[in-house]
Design a protein around this nucleic acid. Structure first.
Length: 688
DNA sequence: CAGTGAGCGAGCTTCCGCTTGACTT
C-alpha cells in the first residue's frame, strides 16, 4: 500500500474509505496514543515543564500494529480532528512512529490533512491541501494537559491528607462538584414564603363570546402589584371579586414568530433525551454511539451546531416534498455557536440521511429508535419555517359595587395564544403552546362573573441539579468537553461526592461538601467558575504563537506550589459531618449513623467501636421484600462490583436477585410517566 | 449473589481528553 491514513475512530476510517478508494489504507488510533504516566507525576517542573510520555499498556498492541503498517508506505496522512486535541494526537503519532520505526521515517514524509465535515468534497479538498503539523497548537494542548496534571496530582494527595483517602480534585470535576454543593446550600438557606394566586372565571355577554369561559388572574390592587400574602387577604379579595362588575379595560394583540431550536450538540442532546426519554447522559451516549457506528447519525461528541451544505440541501428538499413550500424558509437557516470556547471540530449531531425516519431504521433497539427520532425531528425542524402565533393580552377591571375608593380597584389579566401558522410545530404531535385561546373581546365590553378560585402557594427553592442540567451549566461555563461530560459525573459518584435522590436529582454527600469547603478555603482561584475560561485565553495565546508553554506554566506553578506547601504544613484536617438517623441500634439502643464505605452508604452504630453493629440502609427502590415482606429491597454490590437486589433484613432474610424485582401492583413513578407523555411534544426551552 | 467505620500507619489512591473493547467473573 502506498498511502496510509490515520484517524481517531474506526467509523471515521470506514467512511473515509468510501471517499478515497482502494489506494488508501485507513487505520484508527483510538484516540490519544500517548499520555503522561498514571503512576507518577510525569512533569519535570524544573526543566521547562517537560512532559514525560508513555504509551498506555492497553494501547501498546494497537500502536505497534500502527507503526508496523507504516513500513514501506510512500505517503502518510494524519487526518485526526481539526482541533487542539486532534493536532496533538497527530504529533504524538508522528513521535511514536519516528521512535519505533526501523525505517526512520523522515519528517517530510507525512502530511497533515484537516476537514470539518466528513463529506466527499470536503475530504478530497483537504487531501489536495495538506499542511504541516501546527507546533503552536500542539504546545497549547501540552499546556492544557500539563496544567491538569499539576492541579490534579498535587491537590488530590492533599485531600488524602486533609480530608479522606482516595479522594480526587481536578480543574473540571471539582468545579462540577462545587456547582452541586453551592446549589444545595442555596436550597438549605431558602426561606419559603406564602403567596396566593387568585383566578377568576368569566365570559363575555355577546352572542359571540358568552359561551366561552376563560380565566383571568389578579394582577393589581389599587394600582399596585397585587401581593396577597395570607388567607385573610385572600378572603377579602375573594369577597370583593364575587361582588364586582367586570369590564374589559384593554385588548392588545400581536403576531409573534417562533423560531425552531438549533440542531443538537452533545450537551443539548443529553438534556433533551433526559427530559423527554428519561435517559441519563451515559445512556444517551451509548445509544448514540451505536447509531453512529451503524452510520445513521453524525459524530455524537461535538460542541458545534454547524451543518454541511449537503445536509441542509437534502433536508430542504425533504421538507418541501413532505410538508410543502409553505414550510420551507426562503433561505437555509445557519446556526452559530454561542460559546467562544467551542472548538467545532465536527458538525452538529444529525441523521446521515434525512430520508430515513425512525420507523424505517434497519435493525435498531427501541432506545435507538427513540433517540434517533429526537435527532431526526430536531434536524428537520431546524430548517423549517417559523411558526406564527397570535399573542393576546387582555386587562380587565373589577369594580366592587359598594366600594368607590381606588384602593379597592382590582385589575386582572389574561394572556392568550393562538397558532396562525404552525410552521415547524407540524413535526411534533403537540405544539409548545402554554396559554389558553381567548375569545374576541373589545375594550369597554362587560363580562359575566362565573367563579373565583383562590390558590395558596409557596415560593420554591431553586431545583437540585440533574445530570443533564449539571452538564448544561458546565458547558455554559466552558468547563469540560463533550467527550468528558458523562465520565466526569461518573467520577463524582465513584468518589461518593454526590448521590442520586428521588426524581433523578443530584445532591452532595457530606464528603462532597467537605471537599468543596476545603478546596475553596485554600484554592478558590482555581475553582472559580471562570478559571477554565481564563486558562483558554492563555492557551489561545500559545496557539497563536504569542506566548510559550513553559512561561505560561511557570506563572501558574510558582504561587500554586508555594500554596500547596503552605497548606500541607499548616491546614488542619477537615472533619466530615456524620448524618444521624432516627434508626435505633437494636443491640445497644444508641442511634445509628450513616457511613460511607467501599460499597456506598450503610447504617452503623454511633457507639462504635464498643458496638460494631451495622446494617443495610433502607433505600432507593421503595419496595418491600417479596420473601419476608418486612425488609426493603435494596441495591447492593458484589465484591466484583456487580449490582444485585437484596433484602435489607439480610442475613435474616436471604432474598437476592440479579434483576430488579417487580411488584404486581407497582405503578410507574410519576416523573417517568409524565416525561414519556411529552415525548412527542416540542420543547419550549431546553437550553435556556 | 452480602462488606464497609477509627487508629496503630504498611502501601495505595489521583488529573483531563481522545477513543473503543471484552484472556478473567
Amino acid at each position: 500500500m502506498k498511502n496510509l491514513v490515520i484517524v481517531e475512530s474506526p467509523t471515521k476510517a470506514r467512511t473515509l474509505g468510501q471517499f478515497l478508494g482502494p489506494d488508501y489504507q485507513i487505520l484508527a488510533s483510538m484516540g490519544h496514543v500517548r499520555d503522561l504516566p498514571k503512576g507518577e507525576f510525569g512533569v519535570d517542573v524544573d526543566h521547562n515543564f517537560e512532559p514525560k510520555y508513555v504509551i498506555p499498556k492497553n494501547k501498546m498492541k494497537m500502536v505497534n500494529q500502527l507503526v508496523k503498517s507504516t513500513e514501506g508506505v510512500k505517503n502518510l496522512y494524519l487526518a485526526t480532528d481539526p482541533d487542539r486535541e486532534g493536532e496533538a494526537i497527530a504529533w504524538n503519532l508522528l513521535k511514536v512512529i519516528e521512535q519505533k520505526s526501523k525505517a526512520k521515517l523522515a519528517s517530510q514524509k507525512y502530511e497533515r490533512v484537516v476537514f470539518h465535515e466528513i463529506t466527499k468534497d470536503a475530504v478530497l479538498d483537504a487531501f489536495s491541501h495538506p499542511r504541516e503539523i501546527d507546533q503552536n497548537l500542539v504546545e497549547a494542548q501540552q499546556a492544557r494537559r500539563v496544567l491538569d496534571r499539576l492541579v490534579g496530582y498535587k491537590l488530590s494527595p492533599l485531600l488524602w491528607k486533609k480530608v479522606k483517602s482516595k479522594l480526587s480534585a481536578g480543574r473540571v470535576q471539582s468545579v462540577a462538584l462545587r456547582l452541586v454543593v453551592d446549589r444545595e446550600r442555596e436550597i438549605e438557606a431558602f426561606k419559603s414564603e406564602e403567596y396566593w394566586v387568585i383566578e377568576v372565571e368569566v365570559s363575555g355577554q355577546s352572542s359571540a363570546t358568552r359561551d366561552q369561559v376563560f380565566v383571568i388572574t389578579l394582577a393589581k390592587i389599587g394600582g399596585k402589584k397585587a401581593e396577597v400574602k395570607n388567607q385573610k387577604e385572600a378572603d377579602e379579595a375573594v369577597t370583593d371579586l364575587k361582588a364586582a362588575q367586570y369590564t374589559v379595560e384593554s385588548v392588545s394583540s400581536k403576531e409573534v414568530k417562533k423560531y425552531p431550536n438549533p440542531p443538537f450538540t452533545t450537551s443539548t442532546l443529553q438534556q433533551r433525551a433526559a427530559n423527554v426519554l428519561g435517559f441519563v447522559p451515559k445512556r444517551t451516549m451509548s445509544v448514540a454511539q451505536s447509531l453512529y457506528e451503524n452510520g445513521l447519525i453524525t459524530y455524537m461528541r461535538t460542541d458545534s451546531v454547524n451543518l454541511s451544505p449537503q445536509a441542509i440541501a437534502q433536508t430542504r428538499k425533504f421538507i418541501e416534498e413532505k410538508y410543502g413550500k409553505n414550510y420551507l424558509p426562503e433561505k437555509p437557516r445557519l446556526y452559530k455557536v454561542k460559546s467562544r470556547l467551542a472548538q467545532e471540530a465536527h458538525e452538529a449531531i444529525r441523521p446521515t440521511s434525512i430520508k430515513v425516519t425512525s420507523d424505517q431504521l434497519p435493525v435498531a433497539s427501541s432506545d435507538e429508535k427513540k433517540l434517533y427520532d429526537l435527532i431526526w425531528k430536531r434536524m428537520v425542524v431546524c430548517q423549517m419555517a417559523e411558526a406564527v402565533v397570535n399573542e393576546t393580552a387582555v386587562e380587565v377591571i373589577a369594580n366592587s359595587k359598594q366600594q368607590t375608593t381606588d384602593s379597592k380597584k382590582y385589575l386582572l389579566r389574561a394572556n392568550g395564544q393562538q397558532i396562525k401558522f404552525d410552521g415547524w410545530y407540524k413535526v411534533y404531535a403537540k405544539a409548545p403552546i402554554t396559554e389558553q385561546v381567548l375569545p374576541d373581546l373589545e375594550k369597554g365590553e362587560p363580562l359575566d362573573f362565573k367563579n373565583v378560585n383562590p390558590q395558596q402557594k409557596f415560593t420554591e427553592p431553586p431545583p437540585r441539579y440533574t445530570e443533564a442540567t449539571l452538564i448544561r451549566d458546565l458547558e455554559k461555563n466552558g468547563i469540560g468537553r463533550p467527550s468528558t461530560y458523562a465520565p466526569t459525573i461518573s467520577t463524582l459518584y465513584d468518589r461518593l461526592y454526590i448521590e442520586k435522590m428521588e426524581g433523578k436529582k443530584i445532591a452532595p454527600t457530606p464528603i462532597g461538601k467537605t471537599t468543596v469547603d476545603f478546596l475553596m478555603k485554600y484554592f478558590s482561584d482555581i475553582f472559580d467558575y471562570s478559571f477554565t475560561a481564563e486558562m483558554e485565553d492563555d492557551l489561545d495565546s500559545i496557539a497563536q504563537g504569542n506566548a510559550e508553554m513553559p512561561a505560561t506554566m511557570k506563572k501558574f506553578w510558582g504561587p500554586f506550589e508555594a500554596k500547596v506547601e503552605k497548606v500541607t504544613e499548616e491546614a488542619d484536617k477537615m472533619k466530615v459531618e456524620v448524618e444521624t438517623t432516627d434508626e435505633v441500634c437494636e443491640k445497644c439502643g444508641k442511634p445509628m449513623v450513616i457511613r460511607y464505605g467501599r460499597f456506598g452508604k450503610f447504617l452503623a452504630c454511633s457507639g462504635f467501636p464498643d458496638c460494631k453493629n451495622t446494617k443495610a440502609l433502607n433505600s432507593d427502590t421503595g419496595m418491600k421484600c417479596p420473601d419476608c415482606k418486612e425488609g426493603d429491597v435494596v441495591t447492593r454490590r458484589t465484591k466484583r462490583g456487580k449490582t444485585f437486589w437484596g433484602c435489607s433484613n439480610w442475613p435474616k432474610c436471604k432474598f437476592a436477585s440479579w434483576t430488579k424485582p417487580k411488584l404486581p401492583s407497582s405503578l410507574p413513578k410519576d416523573d417517568s410517566a409524565a416525561s414519556e407523555k411529552t415525548s412527542e411534544g416540542a420543547e419550549t426551552s431546553d437550553q435556556a
